[in-house]
Design a protein around this nucleic acid. Structure first.
Lengths: 222, 222
DNA sequence: GACGACATACCAACCGGTCGGTACTTTTTG
DNA sequence: CAAAAAGTACCGACCGGTTGGTATGTCGTC
């Protein structure tokens, strides 16, 4: 009967979607259960039926974030190139391309949430770290291949470099939030891209990053 | 009578010191005015005598943070080297050296606070960005000198690179909080150091970072 | 005696969480 | 197979404690 199965949204999903948006905009502590319910269009009874406590919602939101983002990255086009370095650079271009619209729409839920909860809610912290490190791990194979192919006898370490990419991206979001200019986040990702190019020493192939930066510098010099 | 003038601490300073610790440990929203007063050993009357509102305390805390940190960095030893690149690398070594003890003791107040307030408290956000960008600016001259000396005809931009260093450091703190391992923050700063070395193309001079990473790899390979 | 620097007492709004109840579905059982 | 029982999903009033904030009083100092 129902032509569109996605219309039938249960309360739990609606609460989780509300959490993704509200927590990224206001933070975890500043988002009340009532806020969540209002935004989701459900009652408090529904909330506490699905989640034992607000903290448990925090854990569920982090896990839901992991699912949503891993689906996004799995189906993204940056896996196509044959060369591992090209794949990494395409990944960074893809991340940069996600920086559009309002800050709460492209920043990272778990990076925001873990800053508030790392000391007071270990369960949330663990779920957040699982999300970050899990995503970092999806880059490890390509980074390892880059090291083997382009920097065989270096002291580089793939897991560490993978986590570093996430650190830069998280830091870029902080810069964007503080300045209100999402361009600053994009610039930091450009620096990270350049780091990879220098590490794996291919001559630079004029990526979009450089062209944009040049264009901006020309504009400024008027 | 009082031999030690610093013992006489007024309520305002005590509240600000309490804010520096509590907000870094719990976040801004989760830190109540009562928490602050209890930790500072003052009453609520004293709090609202000195600060019109909790938000105003947030702004004052960010400004106080700027004062404290700029005094620390001004008197730090990393300004000594004659070469600008050596000064930058010494700065990064200094930042890495600050990563000791508990997380709330070495992480950044304004990076934590701005994530919670960027959308709801513009005054706090602006004070946080002033702190971050103000610190970044203290690096610009040395970075500019590096560009001029070692990468004259590159597309590099000193303000952008200075902000990037802060993005990496902020992201490193998030990684440390999420994982509970401050080593991850140090590792990210090592990557940033390597970026500077590669950008300004001096042959690597076996910095502490590399030696430590080698030592860790040896340990792991047992 | 005015004023800054606090202390005490208090308030309305809001917080996370509970609870009794309803409507609907699924499972059990005579 | 149908009635009964049990379970699931959700509602919304309500609770005690906490929240940011206020009003008023006290005390030492210029």
């Amino acid at each position: 009967m129902n032509a569109s199965p996605t219309i039938k949204r249960d309360a739990r999903s609606k609460i989780l979607d509300a959490a993704l948006h509200l927590i990224r905009a206001q933070g975890f502590a500043a988002t009340s259960v009532d806020d969540l319910c209002k935004q989701a269009g459900v009652t408090k009874g529904a909330f506490f039926h699905h989640f034992k406590s607000k903290d448990e919602l925090g854990v569920a939101a982090a896990n839901y974030w992991s699912e949503v983002t891993s689906a996004l990255f799995r189906s993204a086009p940056y896996h196509a190139p044959k060369d591992p370095l090209a794949r990494i650079l395409a990944y960074l271009d893809f991340r940069k391309g996600l920086i559009v619209g309002d800050l709460p729409d492209f920043t990272c839920l778990v990076g925001t949430m873990v800053q508030e909860t790392y000391d007071s809610a270990p369960a949330i912290r663990d779920a957040c770290y699982a999300s970050i490190s899990g995503h970092a791990q999806t880059l490890e194979a390509d980074i390892e291949a880059c090291i083997h192919k382009y920097a065989a006898n270096s002291e580089l370490n793939a897991p560490s470099l993978a986590l570093h990419t996430q650190a830069v991206i998280q830091g870029a979001f902080i810069l964007a939030k503080a300045s209100g200019r999402s361009q600053l986040a994009a610039d930091s990702i450009d620096h990270l891209r350049r780091y990879f190019e220098l590490l794996f020493a291919k001559p630079r192939t004029a990526p979009a990053a450089v062209k944009q930066e040049r264009a901006r510098r020309v504009k400024r010099s008027h």
